[in-house]
Design a protein around this nucleic acid. Structure first.
Lengths: 121, 121
DNA sequence: GCCACTATATCCAAAGGTGATATACCCGAT
DNA sequence: ATCGGGTATATCACCTTTGGATATAGTGGC
């Protein structure tokens, strides 16, 4: 898997909706570069402990994203034992598309008054 | 699979986050009872064609939800060839919990200004 | 009579997720 | 100094979820 493939816009659209674990990996990287283990911690924190990736889920997702060129490994940090990643342009676009998709769903949910969205208490 | 099990609150919480297909099945039922095929159409419409369940995904999800007593089969409609379902109380609670979870994520995304959320056009 | 659509159901393979296990480094406490 | 816990990456084997294909059958238009 040495050749990252640059996905077209159509191929990017076909990745939607993202599975939860995949979404959170991109989401965790959205506010800056991180190494794998840090991504895992971030996801646990972001989700209030509700989403907890095991190492298998984490690293297979990272490897897939690197192969798809949605995230990029960068050489920073003197520490040899860490591999640090950041979102690529395509990865950022994909994340935004997914967030927009999710917002559409919540809009419909609010219109249908499906849940007490902290409107006014 | 003749015995639907009533899940406790803890068991319900462990189902979060819901996989996309499972979420949409509950979501499609939120505004009223529907039969299987209608659920499928509703999901396609709700998602602007982005989510398209195959029959296997649809019916295995329905069967699982019935077994978990998250949806209930009801006898309405003279038509014999349709099986109509509605959300159970537990199913409704689960859907709301999932919607709340998703909203939390989007709140964080907005705080981090990760995407141009259609603020005011 | 035929075709497209509605409707449910199952088979099978592919994709995705998870716990267990392994390796190894770092650091603080005993 | 060493022991244990946390950091860090990686893979295995199993399971769940998903999706395309296939099957069956009723309905409605033309």
């Amino acid at each position: 898997m040495k050749t990252p493939i640059n996905l077209s816009a159509e191929e990017l659209a076909e990745l939607l909706p993202l599975p939860t674990a995949a979404f959170f990996v991109l989401f965790a990287l959205a506010d800056g570069e991180k190494h794998g283990y840090r991504i895992m911690q971030e996801i646990r924190e972001l989700s209030g402990g509700q989403v907890n990736l095991g190492p298998a889920t984490l690293y297979t997702n990272i490897q897939r994203f690197v192969a798809q060129a949605l995230i990029v490994e960068i050489e920073s940090e003197a520490s040899e034992r860490r591999r640090t990643y950041r979102l690529s342009l395509a990865g950022g676009k994909l994340l935004q598309a997914e967030l927009r998709r999710q917002e559409e769903v919540l809009k419909i949910a609010k219109l249908r008054k499906l849940y007490p969205s902290g409107g006014k208490p």
